[in-house]
Amino acid sequence: MFLLAGTLALLNLVNDPGSAPRLLIVAGCDLGTALLGLLLPWRRRCSPALLGVLGFAVLGLSTWSFGGVATGTGPFLVLLYAWAALHFPRWILAAYALPAAASYVTPLILTRQPPEVVGSAFVLMPVALAVAFLIEGHARHLRQERERLERIEQWRAAMIGTLAHDVRAPLTTVQMALEELRDQVPSSSAWMLDAALRHTARMTRLAEDLLDVHRIDTAGHLKLDRQLVPACRLVSEALSYVRAVPVVADVDEDLRIWVDPARFEQIIVNLVGNAVKYGRPPIVVRLVEGRLEVRDHGDGIPSSLRSRLFSQFAAGGQDGVGLGLWIVRQLAEAHGGRASAEARDPGVAMVVTFENAKH
């Protein structure tokens, strides 16, 4: 702000060369104040408020130097107050009232201006103070909201850390115990263990999704360990985690793809799980070079939802929080591709394209 005022004073030398000495003094004071603001180590939050007092003094000097012409004083005085309102508490704005009024009125009195000109301070000062209080209130509200969001973010990070260290390990143990028990119980009771295993797997996937969100937020992307793997085997292994309904796989046995196996498996599990929850069988998984398609034969998805379906928390429900498809999009983009939803008759097809598919 002071750099701007000093620069404008220097530029005005072209229009008013007769006032060069006064313009140079004003420009020097403005630029000197700006230099102080840049170089001094302001260790306390309210310390830079002293610059405002210097600024009012420079405004008064400018008005006096130009014989009481206050054309530029009013706007810069309001601008100084606005700057202070963005950075300092309300008591500093109130404390500014005396130096601000003195910087405006004193040069007018010294240059013998008419009473109506001097009296303009009774309009300018309340307006400047009112504007400053409004700005300060809004800025304070925004700071409080930012602090609240930072606390929420810290809580979210702590929650995800808890999932990483305190939930995944017990879930793995529970899943292993249930699988051991399933081989020992009568077939008439096996359905209960199957249901428990499905829900345990769902909880594990949810924990993994939340951990992926944390990784993306922290690093900005997901790291891949890409390998050239047989597509048919990869799809078959991924579908082994989905036990709710039969899934038809249409994959060329000779196709090999250049992907991160664990991440690509996660894409298939998330898409098939979404099709099972929201669509109807048959569920068909088709993979050709560079294109994965998971189709259901349900009621489909409205066109208004398809465009934002892969956004974060776009389609949460009682069985999840809406992260699965967003994770799919992130994984597709990490593979150099994209994710989209295409209408079918009947149903919908979730399509993921990726690069570097190889035979």
Rank of each mutant, 00 (worst) to 15 (best):
E265M: 08
D254P: 04
D254F: 01
P281D: 07
V269L: 05
K277A: 03
E265A: 10
P282W: 11
E265T: 10
V247P: 14
G279W: 04
A249N: 06
A249R: 01
G273V: 00
L255R: 15
D260Y: 00
V247Q: 09
I257F: 12
I257P: 11
D250Y: 09
G279V: 09
E253Y: 01
P261Q: 11
V284P: 09
Q266K: 08
N270P: 02
K277P: 00
I267V: 15
R286L: 10
K277S: 05
I268Q: 01
R256Y: 15
A244W: 05
D260S: 05
A262C: 08
L271N: 11
R280E: 15
I267N: 03
L255K: 12
P281I: 12
L255I: 03
R280T: 13
Q266F: 15
G273I: 00
V251M: 04
V251L: 01
Y278T: 02
P246Q: 07
R286G: 06
A249Y: 01
D252L: 03
R286S: 14
E253I: 10
N274G: 07
R280P: 03
N270L: 00
P281L: 05
D252H: 12
R280V: 06
K277Y: 05
E265D: 00
L271F: 06
V272A: 07
V248W: 01
G279H: 03
R280G: 14
V285G: 07
A244P: 00
N274W: 04
V272E: 11
I267P: 02
P282M: 05
R243E: 06
V276C: 07
V276D: 15
R286Q: 06
D260L: 11
R286Y: 14
A244I: 10
P282N: 09
I268D: 06
A249P: 07
R263A: 10
V276H: 05
L271H: 09
V276P: 00
Q266D: 15
G273F: 04
R243F: 02
L271A: 11
A244S: 11
I283S: 13
E253V: 14
P282G: 05
W258I: 05
I268E: 04
I267Q: 06
V272C: 01
G273M: 03
V248A: 12
L255M: 12
A244K: 05
I267M: 05
V248P: 06
D252A: 08
A275K: 14
P246S: 08
R263T: 00
E253R: 14
K277V: 11
R280I: 01
K277H: 07
D252Q: 14
P261R: 14
P246A: 09
N274C: 06
D260E: 05
V245L: 05
A275H: 11
I268S: 03
R256C: 04
V259I: 00
I267H: 02
Y278C: 03
A275Q: 08
K277G: 01
A244Q: 06
V276N: 13
V272Q: 04
V272N: 06
V248F: 02
V269A: 13
V284G: 08
A249Q: 02
D260V: 12
L255P: 02
N274A: 10
L255Y: 10
A244V: 09
K277C: 01
Q266Y: 06
V285W: 04
